[in-house]
Amino acid sequence: MKNAKINVSKFNFYYGDSRVLKDITIDIPENRVTGIIGPSGCGKSTFLRSLNRMNDVILGSRAEGSVMLDGRDIYGRDVDVAGLRRKVGMVFQKSNPFPKSVFENVAYGLRIDGIKDKYFIEERVERSLRDAALWSEVKDRLRDNAFELSGGQQQRLCIARALAIEPEILLMDEPASALDPTATLKIEELIQELKKKYTIIIVTHNMQQAARVSDLTAFFMLGELVEYDITSIIFTKPSKKLTEDYITGRFG
């Protein structure tokens, strides 16, 4: 694929003895939204977390095959995992702001990177909050505790926090599953804006959401990549019967 940001090839992932991802080969294009759908337990979240090596923390887990980011294997020997995660940001299913102020949440990634320049941090925090479409709502509440924000605002705060360290890729693990329809719509609209600057990969159990926000859609089942194509093709004329059955709700 042209302009592929990530090339995954023959990727396998194991928790202990169980193989949860089976020979995944997929190219993810730059500046596009790639949606990953599939029934629970299909390995979609594990796959997402493989892309910034968040699975590393799980004891007894093991990866095989390669995940090339800009042509370099992120599972290579001398890879700086913290550096990788700065490049590949992540937004979690449950919004997880830190128990700090709105400002400090966004500034966190900068501070642990050793940045001290007050003005630089202020400027970057504002820009990240603007990019996350949250600035107008919180500009007078920067010193408030992040927990005082609404659920949808908290999730956008987490997005702003991820944006602050200027990643190239944004991984989103069911970012709207705990939100009401209005907050969900805001997140979805935001994703459309963000894809201009970032490569976005979003896991969702809500296929309608994948249909709405993603340019490409991958359908996972039982740890395998069943079908991967342009979203409108997946949702109007999928080539595999399994995909058709899943998106029409005949199972799962």
Partner: peptide, 9 residues
């Protein structure tokens, strides 16, 4: 039109 219906419900 079909694409819009499929993708945006």
């Amino acid at each position: 039109c079909i694409d819009l219906i499929a993708r945006h419900q």
